[in-house]
């Protein structure tokens, strides 16, 4: 059994990620296209929301993965802080733009859905506001990486920022539980299951394409993080070689 810490070795990471990346990317493309086509073309309108229900196939997966991306960055940052594995710091750095775009998609599609349904593009609702703050944290995190030349120092400081931002990532997910107010409805996907009345969850006709689309976003995130981490490792090597040339 290979230990997960083996992948802290860039050589091992590059070999393994190079092998799995085409498969992950293919699964991401298939499930994402399949989920969106299924949701857009082959699902009925909702009796209250009409055709706007089709927006959930992009909005919900993007919002879930926006928070999950930050939590992945948190785990990677903690591994860096505790065990000083450079690949984990670079993986956190690689994930940030992906999470930022997912957050932007969630904010944009939410506003587009909210205008006809709520009668407003934006409301200072707990969940919407915490998502906006999460978006700003993503921008700040990326800016901090770019602002510091020393990579280890940048990894240290961004790890601290990631730790602080995790509070808002969790608030984004559980805002309605904490405050129980605002326009945004509560969670619906996770209410499907044992002990939940059928009329409280999402109907199967909407749920299945939503799950496929969610899988597509999750695999797309994984593929992009692997791909971008490989780029970051190469970029780190470029820096090391340039530094050596300057010292020579």
């Amino acid at each position: 059994m290979v230990s997960i810490w083996e992948y802290a070795n860039p050589r091992r990471f590059m070999a393994t990620s190079g092998a799995v990346l085409p498969w992950v990317a293919a699964i991401a493309a298939l499930s994402l296209i399949g989920g969106l086509v299924w949701g857009f073309f082959f699902t009925p309108d909702d009796f209250r929301q009409g055709a706007t229900v089709k927006i959930i196939y992009v909005h919900v997966p993007a919002a879930i993965m926006a928070v999950n991306a930050w939590l992945m960055m948190l785990v990677a940052s903690l591994i860096w802080v505790i065990r000083r594995h450079h690949v984990s710091a670079l993986a956190a750095k690689a994930a940030a733009p992906v999470g930022m775009i997912f957050t932007l998609i969630a904010l944009f599609t939410g506003a587009v859905w909210g205008q006809p349904m709520w009668g407003t593009w934006w409301e200072w609702d707990p969940r919407l506001t915490s998502f906006l703050i999460l978006f700003l944290f993503y921008l700040g995190y990326m800016a901090l990486w770019e602002a510091i030349d020393n990579p280890d120092q940048a990894a240290d400081l961004t790890a601290v920022l990631c730790l602080v931002g995790s509070v808002f990532a969790l608030i984004s997910r559980y805002a309605l539980v904490f405050w129980n107010q605002g326009l945004h409805q509560g969670t619906t996907v996770s209410t499907v299951g044992v002990g939940v009345a059928r009329n409280e969850g999402v109907a199967d006709v909407f749920l299945y394409p939503l799950m496929v689309s969610l899988a597509g976003f999750a695999f797309l995130f994984l593929a992009l993080v692997l791909y971008r981490t490989r780029t970051e490792i190469r970029a780190r090597r470029v820096k090391a070689l340039i530094a050596q040339e300057r010292m020579a």
């Binding site: 860039p10 090597r237 050596q244």
Partner: peptide
């Protein structure tokens, strides 16, 4: 290139000199 078909000792030396462990390990990566 890191992850490419050819290995590299150059970056390994770089990592050793600069103290950058990632540069060191990445340079040795195939």
């Amino acid at each position: 290139r890191t992850g490419g078909k050819t290995g590299g000792k150059t970056g390994a030396r770089t990592g050793a000199r600069t103290g950058d462990k990632t540069g060191d390990r990445a340079a040795r990566a195939k």
